[in-house]
């Protein structure tokens, strides 16, 4: 290896920094969608590399469903404070009240789909023209087709058949008033790439990513945390297990995995050996239909 060879993580990092700076250069009012999960935490690290010693040219925006893990919220508030960056939180609860939306029913009544309403309202409220998100193409096959600069119409809709060609590293962020662009700087990263990067950069994560004891129920093979947000049936058995979270979403739609992995090295060995995909193992909402993600994205989802 010559001294001018780069590791694959360096390639991915530089690509992501370049995308961040294109957003800063091309848009008036961008925002970084921050969920408290590892992918958006990775985005923050990349934004630091892209813009420090300057400030971020965008606020962090969190769409809070009210069903989040308290550990993730704590982490979110602490991070914004440490960085000295602006954090905007908008609550799905408020949208439900203001717009008389109907809460989904059922055992794992998830507000996942309702987030879209709050997100679109927030985009309108602040006139955001670009929203940076942590989606990756390896997550799901509709995502595998999405551009890095993905244009949404004024209803927030994605039209997979009308995507702009995206050539070289040239990103076309031109839009008509009312439209916005979703930007995905870590499109080309896999789950394992993110973990390897977190290890290399020594990034701190919310505690729920590491093994801990928790009360869960076994729902069709997936472990769901017992919380105020899910309704237990008489037949449910509450178990106490050593678990960790592979992804962090809502408590109602994210499943835990049994694990003793208490540090990043252990987590990486676990993921390397696993036979189930990230979404398959941890998302309760994706199994509904083959095109679940494509449909949600068409409606304005992240």
């Amino acid at each position: 290896m010559s001294k001018y060879s780069l590791d694959y993580l360096d390639h991915l990092e530089s690509e992501a920094i370049h995308i961040f700076r294109e957003v800063a250069g091309q848009f008036e009012r961008p925002a970084l969608l921050f969920s408290g999960g590892k992918d958006s935490i990775t985005l923050v690290q990349l934004a630091l590399k892209a813009f420090r010693p300057g400030k971020f040219p965008f606020p962090l925006v969190h769409i809070d469903t009210g069903h989040n893990f308290p550990e993730a919220l704590e982490y979110r508030d602490q991070l914004a404070k440490t960085l000295g960056e602006k954090l905007i939180v908008r609550n799905v609860e408020d949208t439900i009240k203001a717009k008389h939306l109907t809460e989904p029913k059922g055992k794992f009544a998830s507000r996942n789909a309702l987030q879209t309403y709050t997100l679109l309202d927030t985009i309108e409220e602040f006139k955001f023209d670009a929203c940076i998100g942590g989606a990756r193409r390896d997550e799901e096959k509709a995502r595998a087709k999405e551009r890095i600069f993905s244009v949404r119409d004024e209803f927030g809709q994605w039209d997979p058949k009308l995507q702009r060609p995206e050539l070289w590293n040239t990103y076309n962020g031109r839009i008509t008033k009312g439209e916005n662009v979703r930007v995905f700087p870590i499109s080309n990263w896999t789950e394992l790439d993110v973990w390897n990067y977190i290890r290399r950069e020594k990034i701190e994560l919310p505690s729920i990513y590491f093994s801990h004891e928790r009360e869960v129920i076994d729902h069709e093979g997936q472990l769901v945390a017992v919380s105020d947000f899910i309704k237990l049936d008489d037949t449910d058995k509450v178990l106490r297990k050593k678990v960790r979270y592979r992804t962090v979403g809502d408590m109602t739609c994210t499943a835990a995995v049994e694990s003793h992995a208490s540090n990043i090295d252990d987590i990486i060995s676990e993921i390397t050996a696993t036979k189930t995909s990230e979404r398959g193992e941890t998302r309760i909402d994706d199994k509904v239909s083959e095109a679940a993600m494509e449909d949600r994205k068409k409606n304005g989802y992240f």
Binding site: A144, K145, P160, K161, Q163, A291, E294
Partner: peptide, 16 residues
């Protein structure tokens, strides 16, 4: 990855 592609049995767009 897209519904239209599965329905028609063809690849339309680039997938990564």
């Amino acid at each position: 990855g897209l519904r239209a592609e599965r329905e028609q049995g063809i690849t339309i767009d680039v997938a990564y």
